[in-house]
Each structure stands twice: as structure tokens, then as C-alpha cells.
Amino acid sequence: MAQHKVNYAAEGGLPVVLTTVDKLVQWGRSNSVWALTYGLACCAIEMMAAGASRYDFDRFGTIFRASPRQADIMVVAGTLTKKHAEFIRRLYDQMAEPKWVISMGSCANTGGMFNTYATVQGVDRIIPVDIYLPGCAPRPETLQFALMMLQKQIRRESAFRALKPKRLV
């Protein structure tokens, strides 16, 4: 039986943090974005460099996973060719929601310098892309920046991502 009237809102009332579900969930998601190692070409080397000693991706909570089932983001690093296009779609479909895609490098963005018969002219023809990184190949710092922007984007989103319309092109 409460004998006193407690002012919960006042400082030092109770050890309670008030937040919204959206914020809590997305805070968790944004700080543990596990990436699918989707190394296709040259950019994959820079992606590995971003994960290695000097650039150390782990401090962002990003660990490279080899399985699409465990991954939250797909870093499409390199040229997507027409022969491979089918597989990127398959692996994207296998990833669990919520999922995001970073298109790394000019080739993944637009086909880049490879304006040829064998190259898909932009990975966004196949899967929806959230962030495009320019550069050929982008430096690891660029990937870090992109990841931080993605974290910022995730934090702003609603936790129920399924409600959000996704567009392909």
C-alpha cells in the first residue's frame, strides 16, 4: 500500500528509462548490423581491409558473416555480372528481414566503367539498395562512413519495417 505519493517523473525516482519500442529495437539493430560478405571483385579487397587491422569494422558492431541467414546488411562489393545476377537475388531473398543493402563501388551502383554486354548496369535493377558508395574502389573510410549513415537511418526508421514500401528501381 502506497503511503507516499511518488513523483515518478522527478529525477532519481525509479530506475526506469522511458522510451518507445521503435527506439529500443532500432538502437539494438543499428549497433549490431552483421554484414554478409558479398565480395564480388576489387571492392571486396577494400571491404576486407575495412574489416582488418587498421580500419577494424568490429567496433561498429559489424561482423562479417558468411551466411545470409545471419546477416542484416548485404554489402555488394564489386561488379555484378549477368551470370551472377541470379545468385545475388537468391541470397537477398534468403536474408531475414529487416535487411539493408549497401552498394559499394561504381560497378555495383551503375555498372561503372564496364559498359559491356556482361555487366548488370547497377545492382538496383535486381535488389533494392539503401546506400550507394561512389568510388572505384571506395576506400575503407568510405565504407565506414556509409555504415554510420546506415546506422543513423536505421535509428530513424520504424521498427516495423514490413510496413514501409520498398521500391526496386
Binding site: 564489386g78 561488379t79 555480372t81 551470370k83 551472377h84 564496364f114 559491356t116 556482361a118
Partner: peptide, 8 residues
């Protein structure tokens, strides 16, 4: 099986 990075 190769050719998945054939860029012409």
C-alpha cells in the same frame, strides 16, 4: 565453373 566475374 568460372565466368561469374566476366566483365568483357
Amino acid at each position: 565453373d568460372v565466368g561469374y566475374l566476366h566483365r568483357g
